[in-house]
């Protein structure tokens, strides 16, 4: 098989995931796009490992081992990411990453927390005034 086929497919999948990460608004859809990018990298790793195991007689199988590690790390990442998204959704009532602008500069007035401050900021203000 020509090596360009898996390499090109991997590049296109990566850029699809890149578009999803940049263009999506829901945090869970962003996580899905991150999974797409990780899978593109996995395909690259497997393809180059299969190539090198025959071409260079590389017996470490580092590509496939790294693919397994990437899959495990992706599983851990999706668990932590979903826990964060659920915590944010529980505190703020939304999972839209456009509306989470607490650390953004120059948007202090039109943030979603200006009308309904979060309990943490209220507690900090109370402690600061006390």
């Amino acid at each position: 098989m020509h090596l360009a086929y898996p390499a090109v497919l991997s590049a296109l999948l990566f850029c699809t995931g890149l578009y999803g990460v940049l263009a999506r608004r829901n945090a869970i859809l962003v996580l899905m796009s991150v999974e797409l990018m990780l899978n593109a990298v996995n395909l690259n790793l497997v393809a180059f490992d299969v190539w090198l195991s025959k071409a260079a007689e590389e017996a470490l199988h580092s590509g496939q081992a790294l693919t397994l590690f990437t899959i495990a790390i992706a599983a851990a990442e999706i668990g932590i990411g979903l826990a964060i998204v659920l915590a944010v959704h529980r505190n703020r009532g939304t999972a839209d990453i456009d509306k989470l602008r607490d650390t953004a500069e120059g948007h202090e007035t039109d943030g979603p927390d200006s009308d309904a401050p979060a309990p943490e900021t209220a507690g900090e203000k109370a402690e600061a005034t006390a």
Binding site: A4, V8, V50, W51
Partner: peptide, 18 residues
């Protein structure tokens, strides 16, 4: 990628690599 691996082929015959 196409420019770099234009003349590269994966040998899928023989024992399975994975």
């Amino acid at each position: 990628v196409v420019d770099a691996f234009r003349t590269t082929w994966i040998d899928l015959d023989g024992a399975a690599a994975g």
